[in-house]
Each structure stands twice: as structure tokens, then as C-alpha cells.
Design a protein around this nucleic acid. Structure first.
Length: 812
RNA sequence: GCCCGAGUGGCGAAACCGGCAGACGCAACGGACUUAAAAUCCGUUUCCCGGCAACGGGAGUGUGGGUUCAAGUCCCACCUCGGGCACCA
């Protein structure tokens, strides 16, 4: 049969139509087969896929298809992280209703995904903006409220006076509003909803152990840092004239060197302690936008006029306000020990506060004059009964004493804070509570869920959430006393949506519960989660938190959502992240239109190993298209040669040998490092070799070569593989066929090539039968025509033989 | 400042356990096919030196040292780039 010309669009459109069959990628629980849950992070439906998505999903799709071929029961779902601010911005800018805008984006992106040939079970699709989904956000919120894991408190938020609304941290640019670049953002106290993530600090930290085998070390380190567990002590300093200030310190052993106490400016007692004439100064420190950026900040502060008493030695120390003290960490109050802390040293020397050394280096004396802080551990001195003790022992005894006398204790603090989830926005999950004058905050009864987001709202971009001015939404009878009341108008942070969506995939049509536990028990944990490293902290910590809460609610039994995590690299163009503003976007649609989806996918896998950043190169893409054309022509022109009789010869052996060497390589890549770039290189080598021996091959090897080649291609270039599988006369789908079996004997070279080195430099190569003993190799090497002359008159000191590989002759 | 990761041809990269550096692809060049071009097929391509040539010699994986018969790979110091964290008391 004459070869056919490769026309990617004709082939791919034909199969894309057939792949509309929802049964094709459908997963259902099956106790007879091992399950495999492969998950890629769901996209925000911004309107179009970008190359980062294509890369992420090409990796996941290759894996899903491979696991199918290995006989696993594969779950491979997809959904939409569909709530969020861009929908409101689009509403403002283009006068489109957020839901309508979001759904039309989803429609387009889904079309793109289908065109790219990703093997998703669309029957399990989830869009988080639909009431069928977000009602369970609300349900979980009520459960957390019951368990005291959700609560309300005053907190400081970023407030833009111009917009008259709260800003997310990401919307504060250099201390100013992103929309009003001249307007400094103020800190305002506002009542907000929080989830008690800190109740799980230790679980989140300790259960990282379960992830060490399957998550990148880098991500786990980032999470450990984020949780930031720190062991120390809390000590109460009595304020002269009434009250107590509690400080947190990790270095209680230096407490005899404390020469002042410093409060964060936001500290609740700060306003009461500062003199009337300093009130304005205090406010200006609080609102100073420079405090967001510690690098730029000069340490500043002032004396309050009050003193506190160090309980260890009874000494009076001045109480200061300091702009570098964080309210959000520890107790918001520190004891300054300038002799042993660099920051305290900087602050105290600036304001002429006493520096009193109390720790000496183990092999040195206590200095009289201090030129810089000595922050290391050492031997405690000038510290009453504790003098002479090493730092660690001093801490132990001081903690014990503080506890005994009741003015302190050992304590642990965390950097991790409770999760503030209130957003004064429209396009998110309504928080299901009602504010009643008589009853206070009343949860919406479960039976009344979902609290639906009204669709007929005016989005102005200023002031409160648009929900606040929607009378039909706001006005509601109190669920408890039926008196007129107001609904909560804040919505939930969208990170809630993505914290548990992968559970919903397992049972996405359930209208009586978020999911049925037995389904989770079958599919969980996720066997492989794939996404960008930019989610290492927020999404992946919230997801872990949510999983632990659900476990403690008795809904699931797994402690962690995902056994394995893979973080793929970014897609760059000209060394920079692709972005609209840089004008270096590459549109997947254009690539698909020009070369087809197989080429596009193959290139994202070929250009770099998946965990590394890859730089997009237009002309390099063509190489993948060329390769697919070579495969296509080879297979189509040789289909009919499969049955042709003939004595198998050297060409057949060569073809089969390379075939099985390639199979070994690719199987190893899938089971190991996922370096698909080398898998594809191996396939190219195979095809190159086949072109060379093609003319001499007989029907005896052609059949197995064609079949195995197409099967190996199936996870990487699914359209091509499916088309050729049909050309070969088989019933599809190709990704449901068994992965080919590796044959060691066919893969083996006839003879081993052994490198002969003299003093480490390659001088000759010899061929020897496999298993040739070392002594024989050594004498073959020494007698070799190229080697022997170079040994004339030299003394052979040593010969190192690595059987089957190398002989190194050391001469003098 | 601290903690990771990386640095290999003109370019993207490979070398997985210390054993032939540069597989595979891009680009470039040469040849075949063609009236011509594209496409395709077959070659060459790390650099330097010698040779008409097959070939031979030398250098070479950011820099400097070290370990080893043997180092891109291991150890020490440094440089550059990327990422994360950063008054966390």
C-alpha cells in the first residue's frame, strides 16, 4: 500500500467526534481491578486555555492513558474553579452577568480540552459556581460552626477609602490600592469570618510525614515554614500602675538581659499606654504602608511613659511601641534583649536603651562593652541563680520556675494563622447565616440550603458587596424567631471551593450529601496530583486542612488527600513567563490549527523534563510534527507487508532489538521519573532505525514492530495512535489495549562493545560476547592492535575491568 | 541575610548507580529527488591543530582546588542565574 500523507486535522477531527462518546473515559468503582486516581489541578475559567494548562494536562493525560493500558481502573476527572473576582471585573467592564460570562468561558475551554484529546470523564464534571456544588461549601461551613471551627472576630483588613471596600492582600500594590495608585491603604478593624486552621497546626505539621515519600521535598519544606512551629516561653510582665503584658520569647535564657518591653502598635493595650500627645503618632505607624515590606522599613518607635517589671529579677524596664513588632505573631509583645538579638540591638542602640550582656560564648568571657549582638547559645551569666548554666539548661530551669511561680510557662507558637474567609464580594459562596437583632447570628438551617446567589445584581465595584444592596437577598425572616432579619452579605474565599472539589468528582450528582463515603473509600487517596508549584502553600494547605476536618466529621477515613504530588515547571517564551502584558503568549488554538493536537502535546512533553521550566520555541514544534509524519508514513506504507513471507534476517533482528530497547526505556520513564522528553527521543531513535532497515525487513517482524510502535505512542500522541491502530485493522480504543510486554532476549545486543582506556583515555573499542570473563577481556584489550603499540616500553601498573563495559589500563 | 534548585555545543536538551560527554530535536551546511521550489530522503555539524583523504592529536560540562585507575556526576571554596522564605522575637 502506498504511504499516506499525514493530515493531522483530518485525523484528529474524525476521532474527536468519535471521542464524544461519554462511555469512553467513564470510570466506575470496580473491586476486581486496582484503582488509580489521576488528577490535574482544575483551571479558573478565564476564557482560554494557556500553554501552562496544556502542559499540565498533557502530563496527566499521558499518565492516565498509560495506567489504563497497565490495567488500572482509572479515574481522570476535570472541573472548573468558577468563582472569583475576574467575573465581576468582566461584569463591570463588558456589562456581562458573571454567571453567564463564566459559563460561556467554560464552554469554550471545554471545547479546547476536547480538541486536545484529553481523556476526561466529563460525566463527573464540577463547576464550583453552581448551587449544586456551593451548597456543600455552605453545609461544611455549618458543620464547622457547630464544631467551633468557624467563628467571627474583629480583624484588621486592608481598606481603600476611595473604593470604600476591603481589598485582598493581592490587591494592595506597594501599600496603595491597585485601582487608586495614589491612595494609601488603611488598616481597619472589621468583623470577619475565620476557619480555625490553627486547631490543626500540629496535624498539618506531623502528618507531613505521610507525604515524604510522594511529595516534592521543596513543597513540604515550604509548608513546614508556613506553619512555622516555634517552641519558647510566655512570661508575664506586670505593668506598673496596673495590667499585665505577656511576651513570647524563644530565648528565655536571656531574660536577665531584657532592657525594655516593646509592643506592636496594633496591640490592644497600646492605645491605653501611650500618652495623649502620641496618639496620632501611633496611628501613623499603624497605617504606614512601608510596614508591609520589612526590607525597606527603618525601625522606629517611642517610649510610652510606662514601665513593666521583669518577674525574674524585679527590675523595671520601659515600655515602648515598636513598628517592627508584629501583632500577628506570638503575643504581639516582645522583651528586647539588645545584647543577644540583632533586631533589638538595632532598635535599642538607636534610642539609647541600655545593652546588658548575659550570655557568654562557651570559650570566652562575658564582654563589658558590646559592639554587636551575640545571638548564639552559650553560658548564661549575671542571671542570679541561673548563672553558669548552658543556654538550653537555663531555659528548662527558667520555664520550670516561671510555671511554679505562676508568671509564665513554656509555650509553642505558630506562624500559621486562622483562615480569614470573608470576602465583600458578589461572585462567591454566600455565607449561610442570618443576623437577627434579637437572636444574634443564626445559622441557616441545613434544610434551607443552598442559600442561592441572586443573579439580578448591579455590580458597581465600590462599597459593600453587591449583595448588600439586593433587597430580595438581604431581607429574610430570622430562622429562629421569624422576626425580620438580614442575611450575611459576605461570600467565601474561593480557596474553599478548591479545597475539596476532588472529593465531589467521586459523587458529583449527589443531592443529599457532599458525597457518599463509600465512594471516597474506593477512590481515595488521589494516587497522583499534578499542578503548578505556585499552589504549594495556599491551595495545598487548605486542601489538607479540609481533608482533616472531614475526617474528624467522620465523612472519610484518609488523613491526606493525595499520596503523590507532581509539580510541573512553567512554560516560558524568550526566557520570560508568558503574559498578555509582555505580548509573548502562544495560543494553543493556533498551534493545534497549524500542526494538530498531537504535535502540540508532544512538544510540551519533549521540550524539557516535566518538572523543569520549558522555553517555547516555535520552530522546534515543527520537529514534533515532522516526527509524527515519519511515523504515519512508515506505518501506512508497511501495513500490507505484515503478511509477506520471507526468511527473517539481520534487519528483522535489528528492528526487533531496537523496538524492545525502546519499550524498556519508555516503560521505565512512565514507572519512574516521567522524563517523557527522553521517551519521545527514544521513539524517534526507533523510527530512525526502522527507516534504515525498512527495505530488508520481512513480514516476520513487521507486524510486531507496527503494533508495538503504535501502542507505545498511545499515551503520548493519542490521535495518531488511534488512527494507526485502525489502519492496522484492530478494534479500538488503543488506550484500552494492554501495554506491550518487554522481551529481554530480543532487546539484547549480539555482542557487547567494550571501551579500552589507557590512563582513562579511550584508545580502542573491542567487541566481545556477553558474559566474557574479565581476564579474557583484559588480555583482549592488551593485545588489541591499537592498544599494544602504545604499551611498548611502558610499565602496566594496573588494569581495571568492568565486565561488558570497560577496560582501563594504567601505565607509567 | 537564610533555605532550596540550576549552570553541559549556535539553541532546547541527554548521560538515571563514578565508567565512551553531547543521545534526540531545532537551527545551519552539503547531497539526492525536482524544470524550479516546498515537502521528503540521505549525510555533516563541541572547539582547536595536522591531513587531499579514511584518519590522527589535543582541549572541553560556570571558576579554583581535592578524592579516584576513572568526575558533568562525589567533597571543599567561590561566581552567576532562578525560586522560596525573611524583622516570626
Amino acid at each position: 500500500m502506498p504511504e499516506k500523507t499525514y493530515d493531522p486535522n483530518a485525523i484528529e477531527l474524525k476521532w474527536a467526534a468519535r471521542w464524544e462518546d461519554p462511555a469512553l473515559y467513564q470510570a466506575s468503582a470496580d473491586a476486581t481491578r486496582p484503582k488509580y486516581y489521576v488528577l490535574e489541578m482544575l483551571p479558573y475559567p478565564s476564557g482560554r486555555l494557556h500553554m501552562g494548562h496544556v502542559r499540565n494536562y498533557s502530563i496527566g493525560d499521558a499518565l492516565a492513558r498509560y495506567m489504563w493500558m497497565r490495567g488500572y481502573n482509572v479515574l481522570h476527572p476535570m472541573g472548573w474553579d468558577a468563582f472569583g473576582l475576574p467575573a465581576e471585573n468582566a461584569a463591570l467592564k463588558n456589562n456581562r452577568q458573571p454567571r453567564e460570562w463564566t459559563l460561556s468561558n467554560i464552554e469554550h475551554m471545554k471545547k479546547q480540552m476536547k480538541r486536545l484529546g484529553f481523556s476526561y470523564d466529563w460525566a463527573r464534571e464540577v463547576a464550583t459556581c453552581e448551587p449544586e456544588y456551593y451548597r456543600w461549601n455552605q453545609w461544611f461551613f455549618l458543620k464547622m460552626l457547630e464544631k467551633d471551627l468557624a467563628y467571627r472576630k474583629d480583624s484588621l483588613v486592608n481598606w481603600c477609602p476611595e473604593c470604600a471596600t476591603v481589598l485582598a492582600n493581592e490587591q494592595v500594590v506597594e501599600g496603595c490600592c491597585w485601582r487608586h495608585e495614589q491612595t494609601p491603604v488603611e488598616q481597619r478593624a472589621l468583623e470577619q469570618w475565620f476557619l480555625r486552621t490553627t486547631a490543626y497546626s500540629d496535624a498539618l505539621l506531623d502528618e507531613i510525614k505521610q507525604l515524604e515519600a510522594g511529595w516534592p521535598e521543596r513543597v513540604l519544606t515550604m509548608q513546614r515554614n508556613w506553619i512555622g512551629r516555634s517552641e519558647g516561653s510566655e512570661v508575664d510582665f506586670e505593668v506598673e500602675g496596673g495590667g499585665t503584658l505577656r511576651v513570647f520569647t524563644t530565648r528565655i535564657d536571656t531574660i536577665f538581659g531584657a532592657t525594655c518591653v516593646i509592643l506592636a502598635p496594633e496591640h490592644p493595650m497600646a492605645a491605653a499606654l501611650v500618652r495623649a500627645e502620641d496618639k496620632a503618632r501611633l496611628k501613623s505607624i499603624i497605617d504606614d504602608p512601608g510596614r508591609k515590606d520589612p526590607k525597606q522599613l527603618d525601625k522606629e518607635g517611642f517610649f510610652t511613659g510606662h514601665y513593666a517589671i521583669n518577674p525574674f529579677n524585679g527590675r523595671m524596664v520601659p515600655i515602648w511601641i515598636g513598628n517592627f513588632v508584629l501583632m500577628g505573631y506570638g503575643t504581639g509583645t516582645i522583651m528586647a534583649v539588645p545584647a543577644h538579638d540583632e533586631r533589638d540591638f538595632e532598635f535599642c542602640t538607636k534610642y539609647g536603651i541600655e545593652v546588658r550582656p548575659v550570655v557568654r560564648p562557651v570559650d570566652d568571657i562575658l564582654p563589658l562593652v558590646v559592639g554587636s549582638a551575640f545571638p548564639d547559645e552559650g553560658i548564661v551569666e549575671s542571671s542570679g541563680p541561673f548563672s553558669g548554666l548552658p543556654s538550653a539548661e537555663a531555659r528548662r530551669q527558667m520555664n520550670a520556675m516561671a510555671a511554679e511561680k505562676g508568671f509564665g510557662k513554656s509555650a509553642i507558637t505558630y506562624r500559621l494563622k486562622d483562615w480569614g474567609i470573608s470576602r465583600q464580594r458578589y461572585w462567591g459562596t454566600p455565607i449561610p447565616v442570618v443576623h437577627c437583632k434579637a437572636c444574634g447570628i443564626v445559622p441557616v438551617p441545613e434544610s434551607e440550603l443552598p442559600v442561592r446567589l441572586p443573579l439580578d445584581v448591579q455590580i458597581t465595584g465600590a462599597g459593600d458587596s453587591p449583595l448588600a444592596s439586593h433587597a430580595g437577598f438581604v431581607n429574610t425572616p430570622c430562622p429562629r424567631c421569624q422576626a425580620p432579619a438580614r442575611r450575611e452579605t459576605d461570600t467565601m474565599d474561593t480557596f474553599i471551593d478548591s479545597s475539596w472539589y476532588f472529593y465531589r468528582y467521586c459523587d458529583n450528582t449527589n443531592s443529599g450529601a457532599p458525597f457518599e463515603s463509600s465512594r471516597i473509600a474506593y477512590w481515595f487517596p488521589i494516587d497522583q496530583y499534578i499542578g503548578g508549584v505556585e499552589h504549594a502553600i495556599l491551595h495545598l494547605i487548605y486542601s489538607r486542612f479540609w481533608t482533616k476536618v472531614m475526617r474528624d466529621l467522620g465523612l472519610i477515613s484518609n488523613a491526606e488527600p493525595a499520596r503523590n504530588l507532581f509539580t510541573q515547571g512553567m512554560v516560558l517564551k524568550d526566557g520570560a513567563k508568558m503574559s498578555k502584558s509582555l505580548g509573548n503568549l502562544v495560543d494553543p488554538d493556533e498551534i493545534v490549527a497549524r500542526f494538530g493536537a498531537d504535535t502540540c502535546r508532544l512538544y510540551t512533553l519533549f521540550a524539557a523534563p516535566p518538572e523543569k521550566d520549558m522555553d517555547w520555541n516555535d520552530s522546534s514544534v515543527e520537529g514534533q510534527s515532522r516526527f509524527l509524519g515519519r511515523v504515519y508514513r512508515f506505518v501506512t506504507r508497511n501495513v500490507d507487508r505484515r503478511g509477506v513471507a520471507g526468511e527473517p534476517g539481520a534487519a528483522d533482528r535489528r528492528a526487533l532489538r531496537k523496538l524492545h530497547q525502546t519499550l524498556k526505556k519508555i516503560t521505565g520513564d512512565f514507572d519512574g521519573r516521567w522524563h517523557f522528553n527522553t521517551s519521545i527521543a527514544a521513539l524517534m531513535e526507533l523510527v530512525n532505525e526502522l527507516y534504515l532497515v525498512e527495505g530488508e525487513m520481512t513480514g516476520s517482524s513487521m507486524g510486531s514492530v507496527l503494533n508495538t510502535l503504535v501502542l507505545m505512542l498511545a499515551p503520548l500522541a493519542p490521535y495518531m495512535a488511534e488512527e494507526l491502530w485502525e489502519e492496522l485493522g484492530h478494534q479500538g480504543p488503543v488506550f484500552r489495549q494492554a501495554w506491550p510486554v518487554f522481551d529481554e532476549d530480543l532487546a539484547r545486543e549480539d555482542e557487547a562493545e567494550v571501551v579500552v582506556q589507557i590512563n582513562g583515555k579511550v584508545r580502542a573499542r573491542i567487541l566481545a560476547a556477553h558474559g566474557t570473563p574479565g581476564e579474557i577481556l583484559e588480555s583482549m584489550a592488551l593485545e588489541d592492535a591499537k592498544v599494544a603499540p602504545q604499551l611498548e616500553g611502558r610499565q602496566v601498573m594496573k588494569v581495571i575491568v568492568v565486565p561488558g563495559k570497560l577496560v582501563n589500563i594504567v601505565i607509567r
